[in-house]
Design a protein around this nucleic acid. Structure first.
Lengths: 113, 113
DNA sequence: AGCATGAATAGATATCTGTCAATATAGATA
DNA sequence: TATCTATATTGACAGATATCTATTCATGCT
């Protein structure tokens, strides 16, 4: 299952109104960011030296169960914010910086002159 | 009811992990963006010449009912993405560019060198 | 005052979502 | 093969949410 191109062809919010389709795609990504646990997971992965984090390191940082963390990781992966790779017994998650960059650009507002 | 400072003191995701409190605040704003109708409303307001839009202009752009639009506007207002002002019979909504800028900065990832 | 219009609120409801316990899968090791 | 560990999946459920209709509130106009 390929990660969908949810952000494809979406102009900055302040440039022109989004179409329904564009809004639907972009909203999926923001929705993924709209949960405290997922947002914190993302910040843990994004800020980790080396750029990747083992699931076991994430699980330990939360009070929620391991299946719940696994579920959130899946959501972040499906919208293209994270990728994963298994090496041996462990699975490592890594940020997809392009996705974050595109989101960041989407929210960019021309300076109020 | 003051708009809460949901983004207060939150470092860029890629700099250090968010605390629970930070994540909870920021997630509220992203959750507001995580709905297609709200995202499209925001893009309509943000891209409109003059910087403000009458509710009646928004309502006409969607297939959903007027109360539903009103509900979404309230959500966007509560998280600090929009402000509103009544002038006569009409209510005008306006973007809060600072909030978008802070979000954009939050998502900013140092260039992969 | 009475009425018309734009917008917000209240209440109801179907759907979505975050969470957990239980189980399954994948890989390592004995 | 048997077993242990690390993740993922399944199924269930309580709480959240998007939507609607009906109503109320606010303003302007006659």
């Amino acid at each position: 299952m390929e990660p969908l191109e949810l952000l494809e062809c979406s102009p900055p919010l302040a440039r022109e109104p989004l179409t329904m389709q564009q809004a639907a795609g972009v909203a999926q990504v923001f929705k993924a960011l709209g949960d405290p646990v997922r947002l914190r997971i993302l910040s843990i992965v994004a800020s980790h030296t080396g750029g990747e984090v083992c699931v076991c390191d994430i699980t330990g940082a939360f009070d929620v169960s391991q299946p719940t963390i696994s579920h959130h990781l899946k959501v972040l992966k499906e919208v293209g914010l994270l990728t994963s790779e298994r090496r041996g017994s462990w699975v490592y998650y890594r940020l997809v910086p392009e996705t974050l960059s595109e989101l960041s650009a989407l929210l960019n507002v021309p300076a109020t002159v």
